[in-house]
């Protein structure tokens, strides 16, 4: 276990950031259950991919920086990578779902452009 030399306020800050971030991710996952249609559900995981991810990575960077005594920004790379890839994933998925729904003539299908 790390953090023996850490001041208590820093530990509380790190924990608060991590728990808030995990809370947003969990809320996003809950949306997969609570929302009714597919197009509503696609909105849910973006909670974890934006604010939840940002808070947890910030918490990790704060903790590592304090432990190692220098600025550790490595985790920001995961954030940059996720920010670029999440739009691609959701865009392709929504496009595929729209195409299937239109092809099958489902009532909830998106209108043609």
């Amino acid at each position: 276990m790390t953090g023996a030399a850490l001041p208590v306020w820093a530990a509380w800050l790190v924990v608060a950031l991590a728990i808030t971030g995990a809370g947003f991710s969990l809320t996003g996952a809950l949306g997969l259950i609570r929302l009714r249609t597919f197009y509503e559900r696609v909105h849910a995981p973006t909670l974890g991919a934006t604010l939840g991810m940002a808070l947890i990575l910030t918490s990790s960077m704060v903790l590592l920086s304090l432990i190692e005594g220098r600025l550790v920004l490595r985790d920001a790379l995961i954030g940059i990578f996720l920010t670029i890839t999440t739009p691609v994933t959701l865009l392709v998925l929504a496009r595929a779902a729209a195409q299937r729904d239109r092809h099958e003539g489902n009532p909830g299908a998106p209108p043609e452009l």
Partner: peptide, 13 residues
């Protein structure tokens, strides 16, 4: 990226 980064809007096509 902006529209995906703000939950509540989804780019479909």
């Amino acid at each position: 990226i902006i529209l995906t980064g703000t939950p509540g809007t989804l780019w479909v096509q």
